[in-house]
């Protein structure tokens, strides 16, 4: 009866090391290929599902949140009476702090020509609270909306705001096309 060939400990360690090296190289290669083909998945907000609950500001692991307001200029009406900029009961349609809806004064209002005003978001001040997005959607075209900014987001495996989102508006999208901006999105 033929006896089975047994490996020595040295041979076993050597072959295991070789196998591990091949596996690691394959893994790194696969990862590099995946990155190069842009198939990384990142978190993003579907602006049509967002219900402006405020949790993007409070639940993100970053402080301030990686969620910021963005402006779809092609949808904007450039209104003087802007529901996303002015607080209800404002004393004047001006840039005075008491008239602003944004708690951090992150929206810049600029006169273009009678009666048009342009609204720009100061990203470093925006905390992603969605007050402006709610006001804009209630009274206007909804051109102000929230997006996860990928130069800030750390792309957690389990996104804390996706977990807290009551309207299931946060989903994984391809890293090669990471934004769901309203203007582009609706084209």
């Amino acid at each position: 009866m033929e006896r089975k060939k047994t490996k020595s400990r040295r041979e076993f360690i050597s072959s295991s090391a070789r196998f591990g090296l091949v596996l690691a190289l394959g893994g790194i290669g696969g990862l590099a290929f995946r990155r190069s083909t842009g198939d990384q998945w990142v978190w993003q907000i579907d602006p049509f599902k967002c219900s402006w609950c405020g949790r993007c500001a409070t639940n993100c692991v970053l402080n301030p949140s990686a969620v910021k307001c963005v402006h779809a200029y092609e949808l904007c009406g450039y209104c003087d009476l802007c529901g996303g900029y002015l607080i209800p009961g404002h004393s004047d349609r001006s840039t005075a702090a008491e008239n602003q809806l944004c708690p951090t004064a992150a929206i810049e209002r600029k006169f273009i020509e009678e009666p048009y005003y342009e609204y720009k978001i100061k990203e470093d001040l925006c905390i992603g609270c969605a007050k402006c997005a709610e006001g804009c959607s209630a009274f206007g075209n909804g051109s102000l909306h929230l997006q996860i900014m990928h130069h800030l987001c750390v792309n957690c495996n389990e996104c804390a705001i996706a977990r807290a989102c009551p309207s299931d508006a946060i989903k994984r999208v391809k890293g090669s096309d990471p934004y769901l901006m309203k203007g582009d999105y609706t084209k």
Partner: peptide, 18 residues
Amino acid sequence: ALPGRRPANPFAYDVEEF
């Protein structure tokens, strides 16, 4: 995380009055 037990939105903007 249940809807009725979530903390209140500190940035709530009530447009219901309109």
